[in-house]
Design a protein around this nucleic acid. Structure first.
Lengths: 242, 242
DNA sequence: CGTTATATTTAGGCTAACCTAATATATAAA
DNA sequence: TTTATATATTAGGTTAGCCTAAATATAACG
């Protein structure tokens, strides 16, 4: 139902400024604050507030101030996320100083796609804060990571992704069993205690729980829609009174 | 006389189009070609050609066509370099398809700084071509970094620069293992077959060859500004909210 | 409660980069 | 050489996002 508005860079920039201004506290953003934040004149802000209000992205009461609607907050959060991730990227990876990184992030954020930024986030190890220390909002799209330890999965088919262990022995032992990344195995029984029984092509193997912990696996490709979507937005409260 | 014009994105875009049109051969670019290339009307091109001519960036003869001056060529080359490196980055690292990567590169190229792009180029191992196969012009200020794929290195310590893979899954998995840019790992064994065993602080991990190919690393840790900062991530307070 | 100070909005302009339609030039064909 | 066709330019219009200056609303004070 939230329709896909094509927002201009400027419109996004204003939404982001409102987001920043009311971050945390759920108060309205004033024309003055926004003008200062954006480096434009008050009159320009008023103009834009009217437009954003018409688009249903903010609740705007003349002479009183503006507040993001739920729709507006969603967009602002997304943009802010991009901004902060880009800062992280520009500072950590590209070695840019913080002032420059802010400036550049301000522009790139309106251009880079959701998909690109999500992948980039993954690349950076899903950092939780920007270089200035502010929290990076989470993505509203599914995180495709679906790796778990063999010791924790239910019955079914899985592909071995990695062997990870503090002890070198364990790894060589697993390797000698033929349990190497890429192999598909079938988990047979998962009693809460005792060894785990898995089946490879033609062999059955029983693994101790501790050893099974060293095996990172992902489910054999089967599409399960919308599993993990219980994330919270770390955003200012969207006010939709009435 | 050539100097520090603040060029708009549009102006740069036109210079780049002229560059592309006359790439290699030293012929003029016609209004028509440029209009087609840029997706605008002929009249718009004429307008811009006059402006660029006044700025000394092209030689323009009405009804005949345009050609880059030395100053214009320098700028165009720089922009084109950014464009192609960004495409490489968006495709290889961010997993974006080529059409989208072109579109996004077209915008980011006017915004990202020379310094940022040079560092990014180093991070990517100074690729010589864009995903479409066209050559990436060199920077006028090169620095040297030695980046290779984890699957190809000898025993020793390396710093992870980037995860590159067509599949987002692979990236997610690497991340869930803590294998993210900035981390230093020690390569333990490099038998020509079987998994590659690497060691991080306290863990051993076996990686399949194919996965190891997705990891761009450089020998030992070079202390760069960004990397130092990355380790202290999350600590500082919000002096400058992103 | 009226007066003053501050914040906000309205009114009217400007510019860059597009557009369409009309006109001018160049080129190829007769 | 003349004409038809393709290409380029000019003239004039539109829009977004900014601006300044003037008008108006709200808040703060004596």
């Amino acid at each position: 139902m939230s329709q896909k508005y094509e927002l201009s860079s400027s419109e996004e920039e204003y939404l982001e400024a409102i987001y920043t201004t009311q971050e945390g506290k759920a108060r309205v953003a004033t024309t003055r604050e926004l003008a200062a934040c954006l480096g434009v004149r008050d009159a320009s802000v008023t103009e834009m507030l009217k437009k954003l209000s018409e688009k249903g992205l903010i609740n705007y009461t003349p002479y009183r101030g503006a507040m993001l609607t739920e729709a507006g907050c969603k967009i602002a959060t997304k943009v802010k996320r991009k901004h902060r991730l880009l800062e992280r990227f520009l500072v950590d990876i590209c070695g840019i100083d913080t002032h420059e990184s802010h400036k550049q992030a301000c522009e790139i954020e309106h251009v880079i796609s959701d998909k690109a930024i999500d992948t980039l986030s993954a690349q950076l190890g899903h950092p939780s804060t920007c270089p200035g220390g502010s929290a990076i909002p989470e993505s509203d799209s599914e995180d495709e990571t679906d790796v778990s330890r063999l010791s924790e999965v239910k019955e079914g088919s899985y592909t071995i992704r990695f062997l990870t262990s503090a002890e070198p022995e364990t790894i060589s032992r697993l390797c000698s069993l033929g349990l190497i990344p890429g192999l598909t195995v079938r988990v047979q029984r998962t009693s809460s205690k005792g060894p785990l029984v898995i089946e490879t092509k033609d062999t059955q193997i029983a693994l101790g729980r501790d050893v099974a912990e060293s095996l990172l696996v992902s489910p054999e490709a089967m599409e399960t829609e919308g599993r993990r979507r219980r994330r919270r937005r770390g955003a200012p409260s969207a006010a939709t009174p009435g």
